[in-house]
Amino acid sequence: MRVMVLVKATEDSERGVLPTADLFEAMGRFNEQLLEAGIMQAGDGLRPSSAGKRVAFDGTRRTVTDGPFTETRELVAGYWLWEVEDMDEAVAWVKRCPNPMPGPSEIEIRPLYEEADFQAMLEAARDA
Rank of each mutant, 00 (worst) to 15 (best):
L81A: 06
D12R: 08
F30W: 15
A116V: 13
G16T: 02
A90Y: 06
A37Q: 06
K53I: 05
T70F: 03
N99T: 13
R15F: 11
M121S: 06
D58Y: 00
F57P: 10
R2K: 11
L112F: 13
Y79E: 04
A90C: 03
E14M: 10
L46M: 01
T65P: 01
R15T: 14
Q41N: 02
G45Q: 04
P100R: 04
R47F: 03
L34M: 14
I39Q: 05
D12Y: 03
D58H: 12
E115P: 09
D12C: 04
P111R: 06
F24V: 14
N31H: 13
M101S: 14
N31Q: 13
K8Y: 13
V55Q: 07
V94D: 07
P19E: 15
D22H: 12
L112T: 15
P19Q: 14
V94F: 11
I107T: 02
G67S: 01
S13I: 09
L75A: 12
M40C: 01
S105G: 08
T65I: 00
T70N: 02
P100S: 07
F24Y: 09
V91E: 12
K95P: 10
R47L: 01
R126I: 00
E108F: 09
T20C: 09
P98V: 15
A90F: 03
D88L: 10
R54K: 08
